[in-house]
Amino acid sequence: MVSTQTLIFGLVIGSYIGLAAIGFSLIHGLVNMFNIAHGEYMTIGAYLSFVLMNQLGLGLFVSLVLGIAATSIAGLAIAKFFYQPLYETGPIPLLLTSIGLSFLLRNVIQLGFGADNKYLEGGLTGVYRTDALGGFFLQYSQALVIALALLTILLLHLLLTRTELGIAMRATSNNETLAQITGVATIRIRDYVWLLASGTAGLSGILLAQQRTLTPALGYNDILIILTAAILGGAGNVYGAVAAGFFLGIVSATATSMLPSGMASLATSVIFFMLIVALIVKSHVIEGNRGVIAT
């Protein structure tokens, strides 16, 4: 059985992977592309919060709000400039562009801020300890991560079910086949999707930066896991992406706790392995329609 502490680590990791996977999944479902630069959107959010918190001395919550807003706008601008001209050319040119953009953004950030490790100031400090449930501790900042993730999911759910925009998004993205056949959401809807995706990525990045050190490769390090969560959850299925994010977070934490310390990074291997298995399974389950399979 998994210890409570491991479960908590898993939930924390799952929170920011799930948050990032939401955006990745939305883009995949509605813009029909894998945005490999999604990690850089997270990194942008993280560095923005660095500027806001460390350099401008603004408080945590103000920085969160401003950081998310700024990342949303930045993400949309980047998408409109680099991706929009290619919307009609298909998933591969967009994928290649996103890889190039990932390199470009990551290294521009490094040029601007330097490659050294940075630490966010002004985050929550303090720890809650208890002997209940086998004994565990929970940092307040970790609790914040989980709480914000859950809050975002709730808000997203309301958006998808109660607003016109949300309903339009769901109609196109929930059905993978339909999304492939119609493929085209209007530019307006796509713009909103970019705002959402970038905003959640930015939030994920800010929260991640509080748990780890801040480096230019912050988001890039996790892009494959985020991608795995989005694919496991089903293209365009944000609920699936979130659930898969938490699932992978717990898998990762469990693997790390069970592996001998020299082999801890095999935890990521487990995740890649699951991705490959998921792709194989999907290719046989979706039969007769144009899901994941080519002819």
Binding site: M33, F34, I231, L275, I276, L279, S283, G291, I293
Partner: peptide, 15 residues
Amino acid sequence: LPLREEYVAIATLAA
């Protein structure tokens, strides 16, 4: 290889 092209990219990258 039976997968759609963008998934082939991801699968081979993961491998």
